[in-house]
Simulated assay, not measured.
Amino acid sequence: MHVIVATDGSRASLVAARQFKWIADSREITDLTVVAVVSPYAAVPFANELGAEQPTELAGLSFTQEARTAVDIVAAEFDGWGPTVHKEIRSGSPAQEIIRAAEDVDADLISLASGSRGLTRTILLGSTASRVQHSAPCPVLVCRPTSNSERGAG
Score class of each variant (00 low, 15 high):
A24V: 01
L124M: 14
G9M: 00
T146Q: 07
A16W: 00
H86C: 02
T122Y: 15
R117W: 06
R121C: 07
P137F: 00
L109Q: 05
G60E: 15
Q54A: 12
S13K: 08
R11K: 15
K87A: 13
I73V: 06
E28M: 14
G82I: 06
V132Y: 13
S93Q: 09
L61D: 02
S130C: 06
C138T: 04
D31H: 15
A12L: 09
V15I: 14
A75F: 04
V132L: 13
T56L: 08
Q65A: 15
L124C: 07
R131N: 13
S93T: 08
N148L: 12
A101F: 07
C143L: 10
A107P: 10
L14N: 09
P137H: 01
E57L: 13
V38M: 04
P94S: 01
V132R: 13
W22V: 10
L124N: 11
N148A: 14
A102Y: 01
V37S: 05
I4L: 00
E66Y: 01
D8S: 02
A102V: 02
I99M: 10
G126K: 07
W81I: 02
V85L: 01
T69C: 03
T146L: 04
S149P: 05
D108T: 07
S91Q: 12
A113S: 03
Q19Y: 08
E77K: 11
K21N: 11
A43E: 15
L141T: 07
F46N: 06
E66F: 00
A129G: 15
S114Q: 03
H134P: 05
H86F: 02
G126L: 06
R131V: 01
L141E: 06
V3G: 04
I23V: 14
G80F: 05
